[in-house]
Amino acid sequence: MNAFRLAGDMTHLLSIILLLHKIRAMKSCAGISLRTQELYVIVFVTRYVDLSMKYYSFYNSIMKIVFLGTSISIVWYMRYHKVVKQTYNKDVDTFRHIFLILPCFVLALLINRAFTVIEVLWTFSLYLEAVAILPQLVLLQRSRNIDNLTGNYVFLLGAYRAFYLLNWIYRFFIENHQVRWIPWLSGLLQTAIYADFFYYYIKSWKNREKLKLPA
């Protein structure tokens, strides 16, 4: 495993720790999109169905279990925890899951590397992950006050995929990996979706101002 891949996984893990900290310590999920969190559960469940079938490494298995467990518990807190659920911005988090899930599923059926259950689900999870942040970005745009934790959470999520892009470049040139258009292009799209957010995040950080996205 190269340094970029590790950095990507660690920023991903850190983003989840940050969100769980907000939920557990501050008892708040204000500014967090439940739609996006539910999409992540679907992403992880469909991608990690191979967990029980194929063993890659101890690291790999542990990380998969952590991502599955944390994403499910975040959704649980936002839906059912009696204090946390009251901080959820239900009225502004209106993006419909199905508009993302259905096209991604159809695309995975049409464009995949092999027409098998595992491969189609894996491809679907990549397509869905690429766009899963959209409800969260819409929610941020509609929020007047974005607290630091939420801003940092989204920034780390974006940084995670940017590190993966570097990881793929490294694997291609240094480790002689094959060309893999499906994960590369969906990963590139996923990172590109954050471009606008990155711009305003860095600008607010440089000017020491509170983060605010233009509507």
Binding site: D9, S57, N60, M63, E175, N176, H177, R180, P183
Partner: peptide, 10 residues
């Protein structure tokens, strides 16, 4: 020249 599959990623 291909080695491991992308499925080893998270």
């Amino acid at each position: 020249p291909s080695k491991a599959d992308m499925h080893d990623e998270l």
